[in-house]
């Protein structure tokens, strides 16, 4: 295989999963919502994209429709999120993802059941090489990633970011200080799900197909490892985490062609992931990069010259 193409393919994957990871960071890292159903929204975005693009809807609208429908489901799961304790909610949304997968798998009329659907590429130029195709996808994916990143970055460093962090730290106190906790949770889950839906659309249009087995629960856990490794509450850290985990994933995939071990190599990969997550939680619970504090423009100005506070008093 063409090694450059292999690297370009890796870059596309890193970009797509970075979108999912930073959206989980918005939900979990900043707001404290342990969303273990990420793959469900990824699936919703993917299937929406596939079904619409197959009836000729243009690329941009397929992507947006995936985002909107995923956001609607995000709103839906935010309703029990207000009543269920965090751990029960995790189990409920985890089940939700698996149910959705089994649904598209068994309902053949909807999207080809087990066989899935083929999806036309977004931008197809006749006779274009695989490399060019990869470059086009990189441009698309990283454009979307940049927008999602900026939205989260701006929100996290606005009074909004303070409010959602406050909710993460102590819901009752945040509520008593005038924050409508259920509204914030609903907004965050909608926004995070919309971003994940976009990532799902990009994923299937890059792979030119959509299959139920692309949406195993392992996707959710992989994205969680990206966030926990990179540093919950730090967008740059989570990008780093996404890159490292994706490279680790590929690395072990390559390795398994060269070394022979008595157990199934893909199970070994799961074991390594599990070990990694335990090690992170034990030895570096804050992740590689520490959470960044809220930095609004005014705070940055004060912070960079603390003396201005003291002078103010004289």
């Amino acid at each position: 295989m063409d090694p450059l193409l292999y690297v370009l393919d890796l870059v596309v994957f890193i970009g797509i999963f970075s979108i999912v990871a930073i959206s989980l960071n918005l939900e979990f890292g900043f707001t404290g919502l342990a969303n273990f159903g990420k793959v469900a929204f990824f699936l919703i975005g993917a299937y929406t994209y596939a079904l619409l693009s197959n009836i000729g809807v243009p690329f941009f609208f397929c992507l947006m429709a995936g985002a909107v429908i995923a956001a609607a489901f995000g709103l839906l799961i935010s309703l029990p999120a207000l009543r269920l304790r965090a751990d029960y909610l995790s189990i409920a949304v985890l089940a939700f993802g698996e149910i959705l997968r089994l649904f598209v798998k068994s309902e053949d009329w909807l999207a080809g059941g087990d066989w899935g659907l083929t999806v036309a590429p977004a931008i197809s130029v006749a006779g274009v090489s695989h490399r060019t195709d990869a470059f086009i996808n990189i441009a698309l994916v990283y454009f979307c990633l940049a927008i999602c990143f900026l939205v989260i970055h701006y929100l996290a460093n606005a009074p909004y970011g303070r409010a959602i962090r406050a909710i993460r730290e102590d819901e009752v106190a945040a509520e008593a200080l005038g924050k409508n906790v259920s509204k914030y949770k609903a907004q965050v889950l909608m926004l995070g799900s919309a971003m994940t839906g976009i990532a799902g659309g990009l994923y299937v249009q890059y792979l030119h197909c959509v299959l139920p087995n692309m949406f195993m629960p392992m996707i959710t856990f992989t994205v969680w490892i990206m966030v926990l490794l990179g540093g919950p509450g730090n967008s740059w850290g989570v990008l780093l985490g996404a890159g490292l985990v994706e490279i680790f994933d590929r690395g072990t995939n390559i390795l398994k062609d060269y070394i022979s071990i008595p157990i199934d190599p893909s199970n070994l990969q799961y074991i390594l992931f599990g070990t990694l997550i335990i090690l992170i939680l034990l030895y570096r619970p804050q992740g590689l990069l520490k959470e960044s504090t809220v930095r609004t423009k005014v705070q940055r100005l004060i912070y960079n010259g603390r003396h201005t506070i003291k002078n103010r008093r004289n």
Partner: peptide, 24 residues
């Protein structure tokens, strides 16, 4: 019931009334 990982100043600012920027 403080927001323990946030700074003292951020704890104060969360409480401010009629904030413009705490809406999405």
């Amino acid at each position: 019931r403080l927001f323990y990982s946030m700074t003292v100043l951020d704890n104060m600012l969360v409480a401010a009334r009629r904030q413009q920027g705490d809406k999405l």
